[in-house]
Design a protein around this nucleic acid. Structure first.
Length: 647
DNA sequence: GTAGGGTTAG
């Protein structure tokens, strides 16, 4: 950092001589006080100029980045010309104000606002609109609103600036209100206004208004505009109407990188991860260069699908393009590696990052907890607090599940209490669920029941499910029956609960009751979510459903599965099982080199028998196998699993 | 000759 010279600090103070003829009040470095925003909110232009210390800190801050440099250079040359006696005109201010807005240089903005007022240009419509945007960007919504309200000559641009300003400031409902005021006044609306309102609709999720705007776009034949089409794609995606988004996207005569980004992000955010990746490949075929905005939803999709190879490719692509693996992109990378079972690489990216926020830490904390590394997860939480990063609700999901997994009941309870007591966050049903799970897994079934009855929130089927699961493990038929009753009341289609209960009966020598449960399931036509496992081989994701023979290599796969049973039978007696994870593992074994690590992603929990079988497979075939199920990772190696039987 | 537009994580 260069020292700031007095001359530079004076840059904001035009000499009184050069201004005396234009203004009765000379601009001087009067004090360190700056005009308060109250002045502006009350409808007055700021009167005080910038003080020495403020100018100094501003200049230091302006040196920090490119936008800031651009702003500081321009301001410097502006004040130089003032000192030379050249006077600004109405064309001088808009570009300067824009630079200051982009650099979020609020104090300098106020100072310049004062200049415009002193020189009589603050009623110029261009100057006024620039000031409105500046105040919005700096978070001074009250000032922006005052400038707009007290401005008789406001034009289309003023209105559009208000609409987009409110949306970007996180007040999309106010944006829509402004739009309707505009409509009520029968004012002209153009494409840019529509884009701004569509963006507000997207934030609110107001599909109805979005559709009306679409009709407006069609009526005025504005739909060949790439900005409008992009805004439509984004609006439809964020409102959950992904088909309409795709329809607009497919019909676009011209697409830019933002069009692809919006569509890929829309697919990923609507859970269409495979399609997001397909579109990403298509984008490359179209020779559109991806940027950070593209790669974040692509990484999220990789994370959800366990597509590590593509994820790694994206990582390499980032480095190649010189996109820094920091901030949001870094967070997405950490999350991708953690969700693909690669805690080591996740930690490497984590350590290399400069800006670690609550998302960075949370991804890592949740990742470690899901891998059964509860103590490391808790250590990282302490690191996070020491780094001055405040946890959020999701962080506590990770912390509580880490405690649950590691059997730290006391520590877990202390963290649970701190959610509200220390951090003033809301403990949600998921947090209560973690605590129930914590008691239940530790075999403290009475405490779990007591905790459930003391909850201020109505327990849901997941809470009762945790309890039932523990009843199964500890053969507690009575409590299990109560839990099942509650679950059936809340979600009669919950197949897992019936199966747990029937297994609980079976393990308690009450097979008859078990059959009864299965009969009820058939009678009630309880749907079964089909088990589905994914495995990525050579960058291609292969999907298997329980017992399906759709894969081109089905014959070899089933032969391999039979081999498992044959080998496995020497250890225990098992009937033939074609659960999806076995098919995926069999395919992995026959299509990769010996000792290649296999990674499976499954939509449901791994059953007890498959868990035992995979332990043996890892030893017999000398393979590390990482299975991500609905809840956590199972890292199988040499006949043992990282979950230690906790799942 | 100046001002206003779209996309990103747990």
């Amino acid at each position: 950092m260069h020292p700031v010279s007095e001359a530079e600090a004076m840059a904001f103070a035009p000499s009184s001589a050069s201004l005396s003829s234009a203004s009765p009040l000379p601009f001087l470095l009067r004090s360190d006080s700056i005009a308060s925003t109250d002045e502006i909110k009350q409808g007055h232009a700021p009167t005080a100029s910038l003080g020495v210390n403020h100018a100094r800190s501003l200049l230091a801050r302006l040196r920090a980045g490119n936008k800031d440099l651009a702003a500081s250079t321009s301001i410097a040359s502006y004040s130089d010309s003032l000192k030379r006696g050249t006077f600004p005109d109405n064309f001088t201010f808009p570009p300067l104000l824009k630079l200051l807005a982009d650099a979020h240089a609020f104090r300098a903005g106020v100072a310049l606002h004062a200049h415009t007022a002193k020189m009589g240009f603050d009623a110029d419509v261009y100057v006024r609109n620039s000031l409105i945007r500046l105040y919005f960007v700096c978070g001074e919504i009250g000032c922006a609103k005052k400038l707009f309200d007290g401005f008789p000559e406001r034009d289309l641009v003023s209105w559009t600036t208000m609409i987009s300003g409110f949306t970007k400031a996180g007040h999309p409902k106010d944006a829509v209100k402004v739009f309707f005021e505009m409509v009520d006044e029968n004012l002209r609306v153009d494409g840019m206004t529509i884009v701004a309102v569509l963006s507000a609709c997207a934030e609110i999720g107001d599909l109805e208004l979005g559709r009306k705007l679409r009709r407006c776009v069609d009526a005025f034949h504005l739909d060949a505009d790439v900005f409008i089409d992009n805004a439509l794609v984004d609006m439809y995606s964020k409102c959950g109407d992904i088909d309409s988004a795709r329809e607009v996207f497919d019909k676009m005569p011209l697409r830019n990188v933002v069009s692809w980004n919006s569509m890929i992000a829309g697919l990923a955010n609507n859970g269409e991860f495979e399609m997001a990746l397909v579109l990403f490949r298509q984008m490359q075929c179209d020779d559109v260069q991806p940027d950070g905005f593209t790669l974040v939803p692509v990484l999220n999709s990789c994370a959800s699908l366990g597509a590590l190879e593509l994820g790694r490719w994206v990582h390499a692509c980032l480095s190649r393009k010189g996109i820094e693996a920091d901030g949001i992109v870094g967070n997405a990378l950490v999350d991708m590696y953690a969700k693909c079972g690669m805690i080591g690489p996740a930690m490497e990216v984590f350590s290399s990052m400069f800006h670690r926020d609550v998302y960075t830490f949370t991804s890592m904390i949740v990742g470690l907890a899901m891998h059964g590394r509860g103590d490391e997860s808790l250590t990282l939480f302490d690191d996070m607090l020491r780094a001055g990063v405040r946890p959020n609700e999701v962080t506590f999901i990770g912390i509580l599940s880490a405690c649950s997994h590691a059997g730290f009941v006391e520590i877990g309870l202390r963290h649970f209490r701190s959610i509200t007591a220390t951090y003033n966050l809301t403990a949600k049903i998921e947090h209560y669920g973690c605590v129930v799970d914590m008691f239940a897994r530790a075999g403290m079934l009475d405490e779990a029941q007591e905790f459930i009855s003391s909850m201020p929130i109505e327990p849901d089927e997941f809470i009762w499910g945790s309890l039932l699961g523990a009843c199964k493990n500890y053969s507690e038929v009575d409590i299990g029956e109560t839990a099942l009753e509650r679950i059936v009341e809340l979600d009669p289609d919950e197949e897992g609960a019936y199966i747990l209960m029937s297994n609980l009966y079976a393990s308690s020598n009450r097979r008859k009751d078990g059959y009864q449960i299965r009969k009820t399931m058939r009678k009630n036509k309880v749907r079964k979510t089909p088990g589905c496992s994914l495995i990525e081989v050579d960058g291609i994701i292969h999907e298997f459903q329980k017992g399906d023979k759709l894969h081109p290599q089905a014959q070899q796969i089933y032969a391999m599965v039979d081999e498992f049973i044959h080998l496995h039978r020497t250890l225990s007696h098992e009937k033939s099982c074609h659960h999806s994870e076995r098919l995926a593992i069999a395919f992995g074994l026959i299509s990769t080199k010996p000792s290649t690590l296999l990674r499976i992603v499954k939509n449901l929990r791994v059953c007890k028998y498959c868990h035992i079988a995979i332990e043996s497979i890892s030893r017999l075939y000398n393979r590390e196998i990482i299975v991500r199920d609905r809840y956590r990772f199972h890292h199988f190696k040499n006949g043992a699993c990282s979950c230690n039987g906790f799942w």
